[in-house]
Design a protein around this nucleic acid. Structure first.
Length: 368
RNA sequence: GCGAUAGUGGUGUAGUCCGGCAGCACAGGAGACUGUGGAUCUCCUAGCCCGGGUUCAAAUCCCGGCUAUCGCU
């Protein structure tokens, strides 16, 4: 069986199957972020209970701490975490956008500094592949160069050249053929660069193609401009991944444009900041109107939080900024995302995506 | 009863000496957050105990009252 197979289509949207060494998962799917091999306020066993199908860790950050020997000693990230879902690892390229990590860039790789101890690490495509293979993720990401939002076109072009060269090198040094490898396209917020990059990445023998360098602070119209410019260049027959997105509305929109794969801190960060997603739209649970509200966060939700606790109680925990509140809110928002993905897949299979979107957008309105 | 000290948004306070746009934190309200620097950020609402006096101008100086705390009888 091939790695990726389309099962159903509705317009540009599709439901597919992605085969990995830890099982086959249906697309489209959303990955909660587990940067340090754990979520914030949520752990691997919650992932199992929430029926999370896939998650993404950061290979570079795990390489810094606890180090590859610790993860190899546990025989890979799955056993280390005791988590059976499909694991992606990010390559670390995104960390160039974090001032505390970036030291210097060169055409061969990136000098990072470890903000925890100040030490310097030179990461090349070869090094990144070595790290990701030792961590033993199911899907590795090619090493890319991402220019921060607001960079000049020249800087985006430079990032593009490096990303392309490093994509070829990533393929060259990726020797574990049981591990999938996805390429990342770049191009900032210029149609021509996006198109060029997507075309180039798509021409290489990756198992999937990602659009990177979006959701980095740009207005939404620019994000969509970049994605829409890249999308036609990415093969239908491979999974398409938009990195870093996102919000419920953006995911619905991008699934309908034919994106299969997402990861984002958006739902968990919003949960920590008291914005909870419900079937009636987002609510801010710390508000006074919920003080005496004995209903669950969302009557239509069957998550642990909604089955066991009231808005009144979750609000109380939110006001005290209690860790348990952080956890309950995070569980709820992740559960919402999981259900959203199931709803999207069902709608696509039934050919009812248009109707689903229409209803969904009434509750999740457009933003700038 | 006498004396001392103090009264500033809902709460805690800065400003008072030496008069000049009443500041801050929390609480309350509305937003934001997109390949995780762990409780972040933005905006809004809301106040000088009361009554006189001096002054161009009073939270600030003066007088009286009220209230609170402490001390003395």
């Amino acid at each position: 069986m091939e790695t990726f197979k389309i099962l159903a289509e509705d317009g540009k949207a599709r439901v597919g199957k992605l085969k990995t060494r830890h099982g086959t998962i249906e697309t489209p799917f959303f990955m909660p972020v587990a940067t340090r091999a754990v979520g914030k306020f949520i752990g691997p066993q919650d992932y199992n209970l929430l029926k999370i199908k896939a998650s993404i860790s950061n290979s570079f950050i795990l390489y810094l701490k606890p180090g590859l020997k610790v993860i190899e000693n546990a025989k890979g990230i799955h056993k280390f975490m005791n988590c059976k879902n499909v694991m992606f690892t990010d390559c670390g390229g995104f960390q160039v956008s974090k001032e505390s990590f970036l030291k210097e860039q060169s055409k061969k790789g990136i000098f990072f500094q470890n903000p925890m101890d100040g030490s310097t690490h030179f990461i090349t495509p070869k090094k990144s592949m070595d790290i990701q293979q030792k961590i033993a993720a199911d899907v590795a990401m090619s090493f890319d160069d991402m220019a921060p939002y607001g960079s000049t076109k020249a800087r985006f072009e430079l990032a593009l050249d490096r990303t392309h060269r490093w994509a070829e090198e990533s393929l060259e040094f990726h020797t574990d053929k049981k591990q999938l490898l996805f390429g990342i396209s770049q191009g900032g917020f210029y149609k021509d660069l996006r198109k060029k990059s997507a075309k180039f990445i798509n021409s290489l023998p990756f198992d999937g193609n990602a659009i990177g360098g979006v959701a980095i602070g740009e207005p939404l119209d620019q994000m969509y401009l970049a994605i829409k410019a890249a999308l036609p260049e990415l093969s239908k027959n491979k999974p398409r991944y938009v990195m870093g997105v996102g919000s419920p509305r953006d995911i619905v929109e991008l699934v309908s444009l034919g994106i299969d794969c997402f990861d984002s801190i958006f739902p968990t960060k919003n949960a920590r900041h008291n914005t909870l997603f419900t079937s009636e739209g987002p609510i801010n649970i710390d508000k006074a109107i919920y003080q005496f509200d004995l209903n669950p966060i969302d009557k239509k939700c069957s998550c642990y939080t909604c089955k066991n606790h009231t808005r009144s109680y979750v609000r109380h925990l939110a006001k005290y900024k209690e860790a348990e509140g952080m956890r309950l809110k995070t569980i709820h928002n992740i559960a919402f995302m999981m259900k959203l993905m199931e709803d999207l897949k069902r709608s696509i299979k039934k050919g009812e995506l248009k109707q689903f979107k229409k209803e969904f957008y009434k509750k999740y309105k457009k933003k700038k």
